[in-house]
Design a protein around this nucleic acid. Structure first.
Lengths: 125, 125
DNA sequence: CGTACTGATCAAGTTTCATTGATAGATGAC
DNA sequence: GTCATCTATCAATGAAACTTGATCAGTACG
């Protein structure tokens, strides 16, 4: 199966060159961060936290759902670096992690513009 | 459970006001798009397509995996609007869908800056 | 025609994730 | 101290997603 790009004629070599260990981590980072945002409940939590810091009791009230369920989703978001928590007495407050979102924006941008912005048309014999 | 934000004192009303039907769709749209990017193989596919249009045979070769597996992941990406395909004889070429990525960037941006950029500190009695 | 090839689709098996209810840990009130 | 409250964690169940191999649909070629 000898299929090559018109311009480079060596797409496979190019690909291997980009497969550095950091690139591998990059793939996993994008996937794990996006996984955190792949659930509608978690997206709703993010948008809610965009209004400002919220305590879990507030969220449980307005989301009208089990507390353990929200706790689970908040943990997923926290592990992804998208939110941070702060304990104050019995209550725990969650808010957005600005740094995590900037990183996310960078990741998304990097997806679109990887190496060559020129549109290379493939050709198989 | 009477927990209110310091500034508004009515966080729940604010939340309900934002729950329009378009917002609901918005949540689902972010979740579904991010789900497409929540798999490492699919992220690798995206980055590979960032180099230019690729035929499936090329991808199957360099990813060293089953053809049906790649076809499955390409379909997920296509359904999410992130890639487009083009048939040319026996071969099918995939490439990035610029419009889909712009929409994705908008979605991510909208997550960070929803309503108030002011940091509201919650307070529970 | 028939054959060879590319890629999509299907079905079965496996894994991973989300939900639920119960429990445990931590804090504050008494 | 005991009790109540808030939140995290655990175990079990159900659902969704991923993988694999086989088959099917479409195309090219002799």
């Amino acid at each position: 199966m000898i299929c090559r790009g018109v311009l480079t004629n060596q797409p496979f070599l190019i690909y291997k060159a980009r497969m550095t260990s950091t690139s591998v981590k990059h793939f996993a980072k994008v996937a794990s961060t996006c996984h955190a945002l792949s659930d509608e409940t978690r997206v709703r939590l993010i948008e809610r936290l965009g209004e400002g810091e919220q305590c879990v009791c507030d969220l449980t009230d307005s989301f009208k759902t089990g507390q353990s369920r929200l706790s689970f989703h908040l943990k997923v978001l926290k592990d992804a670096g998208l939110v941070i928590d702060r304990r104050e007495g019995r209550w725990v407050y969650y808010s957005l992690n600005g740094a995590g979102f900037e990183e996310l924006e960078d990741l998304v941008r990097s997806l679109k513009s990887t190496t060559s912005s020129t549109f290379r048309r493939g050709s198989c014999p």
